[in-house]
Design a binder for these strands. Structure first.
Lengths: 403, 403
DNA sequence: TCAGTAAATTTAGCATCTAAATAAATATCC
DNA sequence: GGATATTTATTTAGATGCTAAATTTACTGA
């Protein structure tokens, strides 16, 4: 019989030896275990991954070769050792493992440096003029970043994530709108800062806050609500962070249609402005001791704590406003919880109490819980770090292929 | 040296031979290709999966053994054959491959039978008293289902999905609320119908409509808005269908807080009731020729097409209402598109035109597109079928493991 | 009946895993 | 200090499931 060479042509040669895909799975297991644990012996990896010793050591060797892991043969040095042959130990490679998060707020730009397990290395911040233009913000931010990296001898970051008070689409851009506020808050960060990092991302600050909360929350449908100068929400539903077209999910301009609300101005802004306005109008209040132009939101809350009538009245209106906002967003999105975030969160409890009272008047409509973030004023920063770690993680060998 | 039997104990015996995971991947490839294509020869599978012939035949053999595929050696019978050894052909096993979708609406209960590739086998429906209780609905539905299954000789369904006009949580339950409407719409389907199917699911009807649209839409952030008796939305953001706590995502009760709207009553309901009310109040209109209690929404739209002033006035108010609703939900969720669904969708264009005009007055607030569903009055039914297929698919060998 | 063709089947080789046996590095006890 | 126990690394054998190539089978058509 004649040799049929046609046959081989229909065997449709595949690109690679097939077994690679399993290989990837196991590489991942080992890397992930090391990531979660920090510093592990091969034996611990065997325990954690349910793989054979041979496999674990093989994968680890390869991960060391690719630069993901580092060998650290100090079994003795670390006290936790008794008898027998000293164990090999592995940890994440330090060079890959520094990420930075930046919260580029309207009044202040903050930066945090952390390792891939989320341990913070440094945090610092600078004030900005609230009206500063995009270029000015770029300049200050770069200064802040360069200084910090130099101090710690970091050549290049694993990832850099920037949070801004503007909607951001999946490409990092904000919608172009007449007033130019969003444009000033979200200038071309990439052009200025890309050289400092391997991976780069711009995100909405409320979304970053939501990411941070996601790490703590047991509920999987909630919003992180920024309530300072303007309302803004990072919305997580069924465990997914929503982005929406042009990044507009969680934008609050629709509040113009809500009865008794009318705009997206934040509780901090209103506390301050209502107080100033009332004082200018001659209202009686203990706040009079402060010059009207210098009254801050905090002062109003403090005065309310002292039973000052004007301050109490203001808080009452804020509470009603908050209740409305929460009722609408939780009603539509099916939120279990709304977490108040941002710089003011710490002092908001009195307003929450009022809002709770209001919400209780329509029990059919709302089964949502109101809470204050436990992550402090700089939630967004923490979210940025988390997101940065996530970004690095996504570049880990083959991980994306299995999503 | 002494034989160390202790060693084997630290090898932490893994459960299975490791190569299975890749096996799974390839099994999946073959199954998926067959699913998508319908009836394939091994050679086609080689082409589609980029696997070797040996592998494909092996996997196919196994899938036949597990009951997923069926061999169909009619290469000759099907005309498309020329020379050479006749090819083996495979297709999905028919026994596994019938799914049913039911749209259990307030006025009508519809049913569709389809195969796993979505090809409809039969569709039928029955009317119900709008006020019928849960038991009555169960009875009618079972009758409808049993009859259809008997006719086609189907013993047991691969999956059965029921759409109801009520929020449904991931367990299939609706929140318990005083008025009992949701309870009547979502009785204990499972107890009554589980015997007819392997997989069972209850879903909100608007969510099912959204699932159906998801198959056609190029946008990945949109809502399917039901506008008949009450508003209700199935919301897809970033390609994910939202459910929310207790299935409340897309619930419209929050409309009570929206200026100029005030409740979640649908366009169909309002067209009808406003017309009846106006006629009862003595308004002048061509609708007078119909007894007030028999005026339907359709009549109002028809009259408006004839320039009847009362009807035009009603449509104007509906258009403004729709614009409000759309502005709020798209504003908060970042929707690119809102698709009007349900029985009335076909005649709504005049209302959409008015809504578009209203939306254009605030271009900064809204960049959302309004459209009518192209899937006809029974979108939910189609969504139910899709969902059913998805459910069966999820039980396919190992597919879930790689998500 | 005998090429010709297209497909299935068999075979060899390879990669990567587990499991088991063996070797190495250290601690402890005498 | 040397034997022994202990812990770990390394090597080896066996299994699985893939690709690639060779071989066999089943049919068509002149």
């Amino acid at each position: 019989m004649v040799k049929s060479m046609t046959d081989s042509s229909n065997q449709h040669s595949a690109t690679e030896p097939g077994a690679t895909s399993m290989r990837r799975l196991n590489t991942q297991k080992v890397l992930k275990a090391t990531w979660d644990r920090g510093l592990v012996t091969a034996s611990e990896l065997i325990e954690l991954t349910s793989l054979t010793r041979a496999t674990v050591l093989n994968q680890a060797k390869e991960l060391v070769a690719t630069g993901w892991l580092r060998e650290a043969e100090d079994t003795r040095a670390a006290g936790a050792y008794s008898k027998g042959r000293p164990a090999l130990r592995y940890e994440l490679d330090a060079a890959k493992s520094v990420v930075a998060g930046i919260d580029a707020g309207q009044h202040r730009i903050s930066l945090a440096l952390a390792d891939l397990r989320g341990k913070e290395i440094e945090r610092r911040s600078l004030s900005v003029e609230p009206g500063a233009c995009g270029e000015e913000r770029l300049r200050i931010t770069e200064e802040l970043l360069r200084g910090t990296l130099e101090k710690h001898g970091v050549q290049k970051l694993g990832a850099l994530v920037i949070g801004v008070p503007a909607p951001v689409d999946s490409g990092g851009f904000s919608p172009k709108v007449a007033d130019g506020f969003w444009a000033a808050m979200n200038p071309d960060w990439r052009a200025q800062l890309a050289e400092y990092t391997h991976l780069f991302s711009v995100e909405n600050d409320a979304n970053l806050a939501a990411v941070a909360e996601l790490g703590l929350e047991e509920s999987d449908s909630f919003a992180a609500l920024m309530v300072g100068e303007r309302f803004g929400a990072g919305v997580v539903i069924d465990g997914h962070l929503l982005r929406g077209t042009h990044g507009l999910a969680g934008e609050m301009r629709f509040l113009s249609h809500v009865t008794g609300v009318g705009d997206a101005l934040g509780l901090g802004y209103l506390a301050r402005e209502q107080a100033r306005h009332a004082l200018a109008g001659g209202a009686e209040s203990s706040l009079r001791r402060i010059p009207a132009e210098l009254v801050r939101a905090e002062d109003v809350f403090q005065a309310a704590a002292q039973q000052d009538p004007l301050a109490l009245e203001i808080l009452e209106s804020l509470g009603r406003r908050l209740a409305k906002v929460v009722a609408v967003i939780s009603g539509f999105a099916g939120l279990q919880k709304v977490i108040l975030s941002g710089a003011m969160a710490g002092i908001l409890q009195p307003v929450i109490d009022i809002a709770d009272r209001e919400l209780a008047r329509e029990p059919e409509l709302t089964c949502v819980q109101l809470a204050v973030s436990e992550l402090g004023a700089e939630v967004a920063l923490q979210g940025a770090i988390s997101r940065g770690i996530e970004l690095v993680r996504a570049t880990a060998p083959f991980e994306t292929q299995n999503r």
